[in-house]
Write a protein that binds this DNA or RNA. Structure first.
Length: 712
RNA sequence: GGGCGUAUAGCUCAGCGGUAGAGCACCCGCCUUACAAGCGGGAGGUCACUGGUUCGAUCCCAGUUGCGCCCACCA
């Protein structure tokens, strides 16, 4: 550290005014390229890919939280001499974005069908530009030190090549297949959903028992599905009904005759021990149907409207239910009237509509070997999940995963790269393959689940499948920082695809990242979930306007216990603003008294308070360092807070007033200690509060920037 | 139906085998050589309940109760 002339302390106002420094500092950082990373450097790599925000609008506090943590990690490593890369980008967010734009259209009285596919997709791109701009503006405001030159979008040209590349590879390996299955269908979004896009809630329904004939009584919560029954099943070991197996019974209201079959799936203890079998509208029944070669009769269309059986035709499924019950009652076939029944009902995670199990032809990823590999990577320690108590959840899921339905009946997304020929040919078309042409060839109409492309993010953003310098340098990523809520949606899929796509590098290098650092959800001051319906949603921009980005970041970091939800209230942001101001004024005091950064006198020449504060400083720095390695943001922030306020300001600065007023060597010695402590303090705070740290540090030292300076 | 977590000051949370901590809120006094966005002082908790282990438990163990979360194809 070189000596500098005393800084112009008088220039510092008596209060920190964030708005006056944030914008200029950020733009300067970007212009000077501090956030960019060099693929070819000799420095050790440190790469975190951004969990790409959905282009559905703007960032919320949860993003601000996540970005604060990532930025702190990245900035610290950058200071430590790593080649630090925070890869920026956004996610097209298929169903979510399509829904947003459809809602917008609805306000104009239009549906996507009014526009047609091409025009609608155009419209979504327009939306994307707007939303994307908003998001990057917010990221700048937060101070995110991302390498802007590398920004990617899950539907940009490059990534749109990666998707069919991996699809074709998986298809060729038999890990992607097309099949007619019962999938979760959202009748509002008009698309298939994967299992995890369905949210189960305990809803009150009615369990109704229906008498099919004298001996056959079945129970159901979805009476309307009886129109599609093609059998009644009993347990093969159920003595009571042996004589019925193999006989037929007439299905009421339809006149159809359906068989009674014996199937082990039926629980003899439940109800009468007889179950209606509707293969086209229930996953269990579908399996029973398969085992017994039963026809699957679809009685409902993609809107949830009954398609058959005279009087019920054209009724919505929820209108059909009471109508069917009424008709059955008229025939005296309702045994138990409206018994209240709480059971788990699936809802579309996007629009909350009750999901309808539906038989349809969809594309699936065969997850068996992929999920096994994802489990093993954690089991054998190649990938560490932090905090560790999230691991059981990981294994429970990864080790029991069902095949992943990846086709979506949407327009916004990566089109499935498969063409069908006039003679039932099925051709998977890679990015460099010739598209089959001629009469009767058509491309699959569907798009891929949005998580299919985000699963590729850790390497698609680095130029995969090319062996780019960026891949070489930054794959595997060092850390992934994300919320525990998307452990399965995203992390598991990244693990599966990362390990698969990069298998050639061997087990150690195939993993997408070495560490998964999970954070919690931002909640309101009372610990309640933030949601529009509660009206407790806070726009991070409002708090940044009022208290500054540093204050918001400091608050979020201070609440960040690993994997734990973080409550946040305006009071706390205010307290953080006060902290920034405290730091500001401590520096101001030091500068007014001629503090400077220079070589410290020998220990023997230092006073007891000098030695004490220096010792406390170094202890604190060591603590902070250790806490960073364990992602203990709350604790490290707290440690800095206490050192700064309770020890440095309340004690050392107060005690310093005496030697400073004495002048001479006492004062000079004190100026150097003040300078020394502040220099280190501002550096260690930089990852959390980059703006105020930069402003004060450059004033204190007269140097260019803190961003690239050494970690204390 | 499984699995997990949690219960500490008014609120939100740390913590720890040896007579309880922070921030905010609250009370009393202060414009003291940076900071009233500040300074000094203070009040406030039988650490959910019941047992057990221990010289000693808020902390370890068991059970109870409350709350929360995740997973789940019993009609």
């Amino acid at each position: 550290m070189t000596d500098t002339s005393p800084a112009p302390a008088a220039d510092l106002p008596t209060a920190f005014a964030p708005a006056e420094v944030e914008g200029t500092l950020y733009e300067r950082w970007v212009q000077r390229g501090y956030f960019e990373a060099d693929d070819k450097s000799d420095r050790p790599p440190y790469c975190i890919v951004i969990p790409p925000p959905n282009v559905t609008g703007s960032l919320h506090l949860g993003h601000a939280f996540e970005h604060t943590l990532i930025d702190a990690l990245i900035r610290r490593r950058r200071m430590q001499g790593y080649e630090a890369l925070w890869m920026p980008g956004m996610d097209h967010a298929g169903i979510a974005t399509q829904n947003v734009v459809e809602r917008e259209l609805a306000r104009e009285g239009l549906s996507r069908h009014d526009l047609g596919r091409e025009a609608f997709v155009q419209r979504v791109w327009q939306w994307k530009v707007q939303s994307g701009g908003q998001i990057s503006g917010q990221m700048r405001r937060l101070g995110d030190s991302v390498a802007w030159s590398r920004e990617r979008f899950t539907m940009d040209e490059g990534l749109s090549r990666v998707v069919p590349t991996i699809f074709k590879r998986l298809y060729g390996d038999g890990l992607i297949y097309r099949a007619e299955r019962i999938i979760n269908w959202c009748v509002r979004c008009h698309t298939a959903l994967s299992d995890i896009e369905v949210e189960h809630t305990e809803d009150e329904g009615e369990l109704i028992s229906i008498r099919y004939d004298d001996e056959v009584v079945v129970a159901t919560t979805r009476a309307e599905t009886m129109l599609g029954d093609t059998a009644v099943a009993v347990n093969p070991d159920d003595e009571r009904y042996q004589h019925l197996v193999g006989t037929e019974v007439e299905l009421p209201l339809t006149g159809r005759r359906i068989p009674v079959v014996a199937d082990p799936h039926v629980d003899p203890e439940f109800g009468t021990g007889m179950v209606k079998v509707t293969p086209a509208h229930d996953p269990n029944d579908f399996e029973i149907g398969r085992r017994h070669n039963l026809p699957a009769l679809t009685i409902m269309d993609e809107l949830g409207v009954i398609t058959a059986h005279g009087p019920f035709q054209g009724l919505d499924r929820f209108e059909a239910r009471p109508a069917v019950v009424a008709a059955l009652r008229e025939q005296g076939r309702i045994v138990t009237e409206k018994r209240p029944w709480v059971h788990a009902v699936g809802h579309c995670s996007r629009c909350k509509t009750v999901v309808e199990p539906r038989l349809s032809l969809q594309w699936f990823v065969r997850v068996g070997p992929l999920a096994k590999a994802a489990g093993d990577a954690v089991r054998d320690g190649r990938v560490r999940i932090h905090p560790k108590d999230m691991e059981p959840r990981w294994f429970a899921w990864v080790d029991n995963m069902h095949d992943w339905c990846i086709s979506r009946q949407l327009w916004w997304g990566h089109r499935i790269p498969v063409w069908y020929g006039p003679n039932d040919e099925v051709v998977c078309v890679g990015p460099d393959d010739e598209v089959p042409s001629g009469d009767g060839w058509t491309q699959d109409e569907d798009v891929l689940d949005t998580w299919f492309s985000s699963a590729l993010w850790p390497f698609s953003t680095l130029g995969w499948p090319e062996q780019t310098a960026a891949m070489e340098k930054f794959y595997p990523n060092q850390v992934l920082v994300t919320g525990y809520d998307i452990l399965f949606f995203w992390v598991a899929r990244m693990m599966m695809f990362g390990l698969y796509a990069n298998a050639e590098f061997g087990p150690e290098r195939a993993i997408p990242f070495s560490t998964v650092a999970l954070h919690g959800m931002v909640r309101d001051a009372r610990g309640k979930k933030m949601s529009k319906s509660f009206g407790n949603v806070v726009d991070p921009m409002d708090w940044m306007d009022a208290y500054g980005s540093d204050a918001l970041r400091f608050t979020l970091a201070r609440g960040a216990n690993p994997g734990t939800d973080v409550p946040i209230g305006e009071d706390w942001v205010q307290a953080s603003r006060n902290f920034c101001n405290k730091l500001w004024n401590a520096t101001r005091f030091a500068l007014l008294n001629g503090a400077r950064v220079g070589e410290l006198p020998r220990a023997a020449e230092l006073s007891a308070p000098d030695r004490w504060i220096l010792s406390r400083l170094h202890t604190t720095l060591a603590e902070v360092d250790a806490l960073y390695e364990d992602f203990q943001f709350a604790k490290l922030t707290e440690a800095i807070y206490h050192f700064t306020w309770d020890e440095f300001c309340d004690w050392y600065v107060e005690l310093a007033k005496t030697p400073l007023s004495r002048g001479g060597t006492d004062a000079e010695r004190t100026r150097l200690v003040l300078g020394h402590v502040l220099d280190a303090l501002l550096r260690v705070l930089h990852p959390i509060t980059p703006f105020v740290s930069e402003a004060l540090w450059t004033t204190l030292t007269g140097r260019e920037t803190l961003v690239t300076v050494a970690w204390p």
